[in-house]
Nucleic acid binder design. Structure first.
Lengths: 141, 141
DNA sequence: CTTGACTCTATAGTTACTAGAGGGATTGTA
DNA sequence: TACAATCCCTCTAGTAACTATAGAGTCAAG
């Protein structure tokens, strides 16, 4: 009765430790235990774990997923909020894309500074990198 | 003689703790000390710190920056390697962009599943999220 | 009854910082 | 000279989302 953790990991395609981690992080309810203290998961656990992994593959944070799981408890009434949550995540992804596009531009410009070995005495790339002051914010995953 | 750490932080535009962190991480050489054990930085420290911050703003890892600093010791001879390092970083950025583009597509498709409140009894978004198994790798900053 | 595969808990490591505790140094003012 | 404000010091712990290890217990097959 119930799947052991290794079985679940195989079915869902993640590591055993990740499952235990989600439990401690409050994303997956504690399953029942066997006589020998092994975790025994139900189909609903399996489904919830798949949801979590799917959301993670879409790069949602665990916090966002926690919110989604709360909303799921009354999915019908929370239709609006669920859509908002997904929209907010799309916004985050697009913001990241914009940052990366900008970054790539800067890098390509930097790269083009190089006039080849022995052309000049110095490395133009290093010159540019240490020259100006930058207050960049990084990409922040 | 030499700038105190707060002064350097102000000039470069980062936090005092960040500077100490770079020292411990081996990115910034240990500066001399005052009689009262305060760090005293030179202009070359300042320049190197600016280089580090610029690279960080381009989202290079500290490890990549460490490599770049090593190459910088003999910049003229290492022209090729410096270019390679920048190219490799551009590749990483482009890989991330590709992932995000894919992600956005998936999210938009997911979002479009919603047929509005009260249209159907269930939430199509949640259905899709917990339905299929996904072996996604995440975006990995 | 032993071997091997599985599971358990608890802890430390990863990245690039940031924030805090608990103290000492320096500077300006009264 | 006393005192407060502001700086600086070291050390430790926290962040996100896991991953990896140690050291122990459980279970099925041979």
């Amino acid at each position: 009765m119930g799947y052991k953790i290794g079985e679940v990991a195989r079915k869902v395609g993640c590591k055993v430790e990740t499952i235990r981690f989600y439990e401690k992080a409050g994303l997956l309810p504690e399953p029942s235990r066997s006589a020998g203290n092994f975790r025994l998961y139900s189909d609903s656990h399996l489904e919830q774990l798949r949801l979590i992994r799917h959301c993670r593959s879409l790069d949602m944070s665990l916090d966002t997923i926690r919110n989604l799981l709360k909303l799921r408890l009354h999915a019908a009434e929370n239709c609006r909020e669920i859509n908002d949550l997904v929209d907010a995540h799309i916004c985050r992804v697009e913001a990241q894309m914009k940052l990366l596009t900008h970054l790539r531009g800067s890098l390509q410009k930097l790269r083009s500074q190089c006039s080849g070995p022995e052309a000049s005495g110095t490395c133009e790339i290093l010159l540019e990198l240490s020259g100006c002051e930058c207050h960049g914010a990084g990409v922040g995953s």
